[in-house]
Write a protein that binds this DNA or RNA. Structure first.
Length: 850
RNA sequence: GCGGGUGUGGCGGAAUGGCAGACGCGCCAGACUUAGGAUCUGGUGGGCUCAGCCCGUGGAGGUUCAAAUCCUCUCACCCGCACCA
């Protein structure tokens, strides 16, 4: 803005700047947020402002934020998540979409049960009270949710369909019960999913995790591994980072399976390798300690030692096992197997570095070409056989200090000797296949999803065990299997359901005989894997959802939440969606088209936490500054994807800004009410203000579209500053009320998604009848953005040495001439020769001189 | 170890290869005030021989008329995964 220079007539205002504004029309100096928020919360609810129809005629937009666990209190992370989502939802609404913007509760889970044990509150009561409290806080924050669609995963009307979905998996053989070594947290007395084990400890309580063999329910997500991996390519709207994390988690590796027979036995040991080209270099075999063949293949004289080794490995927590700093320990179990390629016998070991969970639980030992095998062989004096020679070098086992893992030419490899190792991989794999000793194989790191929890506060698994009929699914019409309310919560570690005869004892749905219910409940990630479908038909009773509504709303156009869900929640949801698509219940293969992962809210450089005592409570901030200020600060302080450092002073600044808007609009109100833009062409300051208004529309629109919400806010701030300068510096007789009105209304419209209360109140004060939140998003006129004159920077050898004011459309030739004419530039160029001149139209002239 | 990210004033942060530091905070000075933790105005990267010039986006090179931005190497911090055969 150039008002200042242009005007140079600040003096026309007799008194201080603000006297011209406020003195004549006394309004509240400060935005009375308490009063205003209360008023509009009530009106909006009455008018169903945020209710969205399923059969609207505008294009749909599904804006979803990750639903919270109802801990009882909103924290700043929630505020950030929901403030971002609300800007998107309100923006899209104003842009003419029917926006589905729902909220619910991820309401099952451990904390409720812990509260029951600790404070004697029933998990259900505790949870519903928390939900009520948090719902109020969200309403206070002014988030535009369609509350008619609210859902809670712990409500029987919801978990009925969670159970129903489980049965769909069960009927198709994708929900199976299996004995499995599981991660057991002795403190929580429950089974943990692999993803819930962090550094060998329990994700929640950090105590070391043990291994136990238990019969557990699994969902066979591994059947979808390939699709879950490949379809990541179909998600251009996801952050690269998240896709890479999922890719690594699925962990595809290409290789071969080779089968090593046992001499004089029917038993065979299949192994998985990514290096079939090194099969000729095998000098030993290693089984995981838990491998089922260990017992059979151990010779009697080794039995005691092996049993001890296995027992130790088995009971050792994951933590202890990995804490060994990679020290490889093993034991020869006395028997041998045969290399299918060479016919050679190699000794069989067990070792701590081989994991039962990956591949086949057995590994061929190729010390020359695998670093782990190399270390193991050196430690136990096993032979090292080189089968790949690097170009221009001759490896010898005696002199090697580490394994050679790169490319080379095969040696000592029978018919394959002399081949490059890459083609040899394919050749050897083919050879294995021909001889029935193996085949090409893809292996995934991803494991099946263990969903059993030995807990009360979860959706019961709808299964009955009958002495005669075995495992029987609960018929769909008998759903939901209700959680009994009257159960005892004792810190025994056993599920309270086990001690609840009324729940356990039932009749077999098939034969009617006395039978027992499954007492495990489902992992809460199951509940959160389909909630985004349920929002479309939250009260539907004839099925999990109304298919027509799914087709209208899905996929979610924008999903917003923390990165901490990058793997589990998002992978499980994708898995569910693919399964449901396969069985014809939904029409989409991917649930979330665009994903925004917001950063954390930090205080003093660290995540807010009770133990650090650096928590800032949204409640306090909202009480002190109001919802709009709270939202605005959190949106302004950093771009959504980055971590955000909390600043009390920053909040203060945002409150100050909203007060400035408040005073400005109130002050100009009498002047602009009823005025209109003039028909004739604008000139001077009026034209300049109009240009700034439209430039701001452009900037804010584009910024919001790219989620640069912080710069969107700063653009509005600049417009506000510009209008202040306009009102302060331009006498009333010179300024156009219509232009001023357009500027003021634009400020409110652009601010509406960020500060919904204040903008609504001022909008009403300007005499508008309907809600500002139903107004169309402003559009800018490209023609209004053009400047007549622009300041062109003149550089000499890349350094700014002057400026010239030129018509915006000046030709390069003209720009060059004007630049060279500038006195300062002439002085600098006096003793130099101009070599070259570069011009950027409307912007810059760079003179290269020597 | 592997993968990803981030380094810009006192602070949060802006900059389609084209004026580094928009906007906000803080700070300094001033105005109005009994008062100011209200409001407004002006200033605010560092340095110097201060109308001007030099330096400056973690560091070192390079490409270019022009680099925070592109390339090479390097350092620091953060986040995932981690004996994955």
């Amino acid at each position: 803005m150039h008002f200042k220079q242009e005007a140079g007539r600040k003096d026309f205002i007799a008194g201080p700047a603000n006297s011209s504004m406020v003195a004549e029309d006394i309004v509240e100096e400060k935005y009375p947020f308490l009063k205003v928020e209360k008023k509009w919360r009530g009106r909006w609810a009455e008018e169903d402002l945020c209710v969205v129809e399923d059969h609207g005629d505008r294009p749909k937009y599904y804006c979803l934020e990750m639903f919270p666990y109802p801990s009882g209190k909103l924290h700043m992370g929630h505020v950030r998540n929901y403030a971002i989502g609300d800007v998107v939802a309100r923006f899209k609404t104003m842009q003419g979409h029917d926006v589905l913007h729902p909220m619910g509760w991820d309401a099952f889970g451990l904390p409720a049960e812990n509260a029951a044990i600790k404070h004697g509150v029933h998990p259900s009561d505790w949870t519903w009270e928390n939900i009520a409290a948090m719902r109020e806080q969200l309403k206070q924050l002014g988030v535009s949710y369609d509350w008619r669609r609210e859902l809670a995963t712990c409500h029987p009307g919801y978990y009925r369909w969670t159970q129903w979905l489980f049965l769909q998996f069960f009927h198709r053989g994708l929900a199976v019960k299996d004995k499995a070594p599981v991660n057991w947290c002795p403190s929580c007395a429950t089974v943990l999913a692999n993803e819930q084990v962090v550094n060998g400890g329990c994700e929640r309580c950090k105590s070391p995790v043990e291994k136990r063999e238990l019969a557990q329910w699994f969902l066979k997500i591994t059947e979808y591994a390939a699709r879950l991996l490949n379809d990541l390519k179909q998600l251009p709207g996801w952050p690269e980072k998240v896709k890479i994390m999922q890719e690594n988690w699925i962990g595809k590796s290409e290789g071969a399976e080779a089968v090593f027979p046992i001499p004089g036995s029917q038993e065979k040991i299949p192994i998985f390798t990514t290096r079939p080209d090194t099969l000729y270099g095998v000098t030993y075999m290693v089984l995981a300690p838990e491998h089922p063949l260990v017992e059979k293949l151990t010779v009697p004289e080794k039995a005691a030692a092996v049993a001890e080794f296995v027992a130790r490995a088995r009971n050792l927590s994951e933590l202890m096992r990995t804490a060994g700093e990679g020290e490889k320990n093993g034991l020869f179990i006395g028997s041998y197997c045969i290399n299918p390629l060479t016919g050679e016998e190699v000794p069989i070991f067990i070792a701590n570095y081989v994991l039962m969970e990956y591949g086949t639980g057995a590994v061929m030992g190729v010390p020359a070409h695998d670093q782990r095998d190399f270390e193991f062989a050196r430690k136990y004096n096993l032979p090292i056989r080189v089968v790949i020679q690097p170009p221009g070098e001759e490896l010898a086992p005696e002199t090697m200090t580490e394994a050679y893992v790169d490319e080379g030419v095969l040696v000592n490899s029978g018919p394959f000797t002399g081949m490059e190792n890459l083609p040899a991989m394919r050749a050897i794999t083919a050879y294995l296949e021909e001889n029935g000793s193996g085949r090409g194989r893809l292996n995934y790191r991803l494991r099946d999803w263990l969903i059993s929890r030995q807990r009360y506060w979860g959706a019961p698994i709808p299964i009955v065990y009958c002495g005669r009929c075995g495992t029987v699914p609960v018929p769909e019409e008998d759903l939901p299997v209700l959680l009994p309310y009257d159960v005892a919560f004792k810190p025994t570690g056993q599920s309270p359901l086990k001690d609840c005869p009324d729940f356990v004892n039932t009749a077999c749905p098939r034969c009617g005989a006395a039978a027992q219910r499954e007492t495990d409940t489902m992992d809460t990630f199951i509940c959160s894997s389909w909630y985004y479908f349920r929002y479309t038909s939250a009260r539907e009773e004839g099925g999990p959802w109304d298919r027509a509504k799914i087709d209208r709303w899905l996929p979610v156009d924008q999903y917003i939440g923390g990165v901490e869900h990058a793997i589990m929640h998002l992978l499980y949801s994708r898995f569910f969606t693919k399964f449901l698509c396969d069985i014809g219940l939904v029409g989409v293969e991917e649930p979330f088209t665009n994903l925004l992962t917001q950063g954390m809210v930090l205080k003093d450089g660290a995540k807010m936490s009770k133990s650090k005592g650096n928590i800032v409570s949204p409640e306090d901030i909202m009480a002190r500054y109001g919802a709009d200020t709270t939202r605005l600060f959190i949106l302004f302080a950093a771009p959504p994807e980055r971590d955000l450092e909390w600043s009390d002073q920053g909040v203060e600044g945002c409150a100050r800004f909203l007060n400035r808007v408040w005073r400005l609009v109130n002050a100009v109100l009498p002047e602009i009410k009823g005025s209109h833009l003039p028909k004739q062409r604008l000139i001077g300051v009026n034209r300049e203000l109009r240009r700034l208004t439209h430039l701001t529309i452009k900037r804010v629109t584009e910024d919001v579209e790219r989620f640069n919400l912080n710069t969107a806010v700063s653009a509005v701030m600049e417009l506000v500053n510009g209008v202040y300068r306009f009102v302060d510096c331009v006498p009333k007789t010179d300024r156009d009320a219509g232009v001023l009105r357009e500027a003021a209304e634009t400020i409110l419209l652009l601010l509406a998604p960020f500060a919904p209360f204040l903008s609504e109140e001022l909008w009403a004060r300007l005499g508008h009848r309907g809600s500002i939140h139903r107004r169309p998003w402003p559009k800018y006129g490209p023609a209004l953005l053009v400047q007549e004159k622009v300041t062109v920077v003149v550089q000499v050898n890349g350094k700014v040495r002057g400026r010239v004011i030129l018509p915006a459309e000046a030709e390069p030739k003209e720009m060059e001439q004007e630049a060279l004419r500038e006195p300062r530039i002439r002085k600098i160029l006096a003793d130099k020769d101009v070599v070259k001149v570069i011009t950027v139209p409307g912007k810059l002239v760079n003179i290269v001189a020597r």
